[in-house]
Design a protein around this nucleic acid. Structure first.
Lengths: 230, 230
DNA sequence: CGGATTGTTGATTACTTTCAACAATGGTGG
DNA sequence: CCACCATTGTTGAAAGTAATCAACAATCCG
């Protein structure tokens, strides 16, 4: 067990290092003009880091296109995914000077960086801006609470059902195109990839979903899925 | 299983109802003067509700003395405890108009209520006040993230170790006086009371802690406790 | 077409929950 | 002050669920 974890940790670490070597660092970009209402759009290739744990938290980010994950690598080699951010979502909020989580591009994606110092300075003068900042933080808080409740929930089927409902919320057709791997889902739900895979297969056998391809899920019985979340 | 859950749910529900019948509701107090820098202190007896899920979120609260828990009752009868709040902590933040969680007095306690409307209005004018509000929200966010990571962690021993370290952080002597029940701890960590009890006994047998009384824990080997959290 | 990555499935093991009984504690009234 | 009862906590045995180990299938890329 220890060996396996250690190996996984080393693998992951090596991977992260490799990624960092060629990732586009926002801190390497010319500083944004503080007064400019339009911020530059940054592009990140799939599986590249946007910022890493311990980096100075110089900016907030808004997803323009693609999907971002924020995650924490624990010393036992496990990875905890805190959240997936979809277009429109804001991420990278921090209390202190440094990022406590890493953010990585799940798919190729475009994000806008908002310089934190400028934003917080402006909030000190402009109340409306301050309230907006506050509201973004509150939204993150609501999501974090919901995630805690999801992780505290008992069964794997519950977790998967809640996750699928979250993903399909914006898709009335019930067709979900997963952009994340099984490992991503597992790390988000506190499960293993095997359990994720098995549970999806189980849901398919029960007629709740269909899996025409590994990355495509059709929700055929949303009511049943909802009943699993109760 | 369903029956057991249903029963538990009914029991809990009845209990909450009974509690609500005689709890002191902040909304029943005369409205605080908006300009007043000193807010009234509210007192709550042990196990009484401070606010309930669905209540209009009229105030934020700061703990003066005692301990508060915020929790959510799920439809399967389980209770999820989102956080414990100690003196100095602020709770009751909400994005929307209603509380998404309930807050209850773990011990007899005193809290100060800050009228939300007045505070948010003031934040619109006074940038410093707005930033303070923002910082409180951010601190809640950091805690919620840490809690997610705790719940995502695998073993019961890990969870208990992290919980004990959290509690003993402010106690250099290593003596913890628990104010919460095993059920509270279980609902906070996503475990059952039996597992909490067994795991504590296990930690005692391993010489990491001592349990001179049910509600008293002595941390005898903090390093070992920390190694369990990695 | 290989080779690597990603995903699925089976068998076994380990851990937590459940069910059950009992012990300890604390408050109340005789 | 003590006996009693309710609440809270502990422990054991059995059952259930997810993790682990392992093999294999499918997919994607160069």
């Amino acid at each position: 067990m220890t060996t396996a974890f250690a190996l996984r940790h080393e693998d992951r670490f090596a991977q992260v290092q490799a990624v960092n070597a060629w990732k586009i660092r926002p801190t390497e970009l010319p500083p944004a003009r503080e007064a400019s209402p339009v911020q530059p759009v940054l592009h990140f290739a799939q599986d590249t880091g946007i910022f890493a744990e311990g980096d100075e938290a110089v900016s907030f980010y808004k997803v323009v296109s693609g999907v971002v994950r924020s995650c924490k690598f624990q010393n036992d080699g496990r990875r905890h995914i805190d959240a997936f951010y979809m277009p429109g979502d804001v991420f990278g909020f921090e209390v202190g000077a440094e990022h406590e989580l890493s953010a990585e591009a799940v798919t190729g994606c475009a994000v806008v960086a908002y310089p934190r110092r400028a934003l917080e300075a402006r909030a000190g003068e402009d109340g409306a801006a301050a309230l907006q900042l506050y509201n973004f933080a509150m939204r993150s808080l609501a999501r974090a609470r919901a995630h805690s409740q999801l992780l505290g929930r008992a069964s794997a089927a519950h977790k998967l059902a809640a996750f699928l409902l979250e993903l399909s919320a914006s898709k009335p057709t019930g067709a979900i195109d997963l952009v994340m791997t099984r490992q991503d889902i597992a790390d988000y739900l506190g499960l293993t990839i095997e359990t994720v895979s098995r549970t999806l297969s189980l849901l398919e056998r029960e007629g709740v979903i269909r899996l025409p391809a590994a990355r495509r899920i059709l929700v055929t019985d949303r009511a049943h899925l909802q009943s699993l979340c109760e």
